[in-house]
Design a protein around this nucleic acid. Structure first.
Length: 277
DNA sequence: AATGCATGCGCAG
DNA sequence: TGCGCCTGCATTA
């Protein structure tokens, strides 16, 4: 589930269900059925959710008054998952790290890499080590390009480096490179300013769409299955894509075989004939 | 029942 | 570069 769009959607949903003004009482019950976050939960429970904010794949929840120091820092990692449901909340299973609950809804967090109480200074340190996030209004794409343009690392690896650009994961990386016909093995320093501008603008649009639909769709309307006379995609990870997890299948555009390879311990997918630039 | 795999990342060496 | 960590699901035996 977790690329940046998931986390931004999660921030929105947290505010929708638990922000001040939701429910009949403004306070949120906070528990940690699994126990690893129990001390912090005890400290936070009974306070209102003031803000919820995402930067890349990091989520920050701010409980209490505006000047309250503690913030919850959540990172889903590879397996972390969040589920929402209506009140009354069912008995939690023993893997629920964090449960939020009010009189209208509940939210369960399982398997996160990080779920910790941090100070505002620690939160600022997280922001400082993250690159610009296409989903944040304060993002400066030139900051990302400055790093890309002086790097001999492949553009495929740079797009996954959260210090360079925050929020892009394995799916968006593969898909945006396909959409721009860019060979994933090209060095960052060979990416032109115009190419970067196009990649960035595309990520902004794709990821906003990702937040809206809570899934990753990257296929242009004219290439959708129905437009191409193909059956619609049936897949466990959701959206309509060009190359992600389509190894050995025919490319939607040229019909050639989609390839896969290991790149920095992740599976890279691309179409060698469509992506030669 | 055991194994493998996943939209992530930090760390040691 | 490889390993560990968090969990759930599908596949294999």
């Amino acid at each position: 589930m977790p690329e940046g769009h998931t986390i931004h959607r999660l921030a929105e949903d947290c505010l929708t269900h638990f922000g001040t003004g939701t429910g009949t009482g403004r306070n949120v019950h906070v528990t940690s059925p699994q126990g690893k976050f129990a001390d912090a939960a005890a400290l936070l429970t009974g306070t209102p959710l003031h803000t919820a904010e995402a930067h890349g794949k990091h989520l920050f929840l701010h409980f209490g008054d505006a000047d309250a120091e503690e913030r919850v820092h959540i990172h889903l990692g590879l397996f972390g998952k969040v589920t929402f449901g209506p009140a009354p909340a069912p008995p939690p299973t023993d893997t629920v790290r964090l449960r939020l609950r009010n009189d209208t809804a509940y939210m369960d967090l399982r398997g996160p890499t990080t779920c910790a109480l941090i100070t505002d200074a620690e939160k600022q340190a997280v922001h400082a080590r993250l690159g610009p996030d296409p989903l944040r209004p304060d993002a400066d794409p030139a900051r990302a390009y400055a790093r890309v343009a002086r790097s001999r690392t492949t553009i495929a690896a740079l797009l996954m480096d959260q210090k360079v650009i925050a929020g892009v994961g394995n799916v968006y990386r593969a898909e945006v490179l396909f959409r721009h016909g860019i060979d994933p093995y090209r060095a960052g320093k060979d990416i032109t300013p115009a190419e970067w501008d196009a990649i960035w603008a595309d990520l902004v649009a794709l990821m906003r769409e990702g937040v809206r639909h809570n899934r990753i769709d990257t296929v242009r309307p004219e290439h959708l299955p129905e437009a191409m006379g193909r059956p619609p995609r049936v897949d466990d990870h959701g959206g309509e894509v060009y190359v992600y997890r389509r190894a050995t299948l025919p490319c939607h555009i040229c019909g050639g075989e989609i390839r896969t390879a290991d790149l920095a311990a992740r599976n890279l997918f691309w179409c060698p004939s469509c992506q030669q630039r």
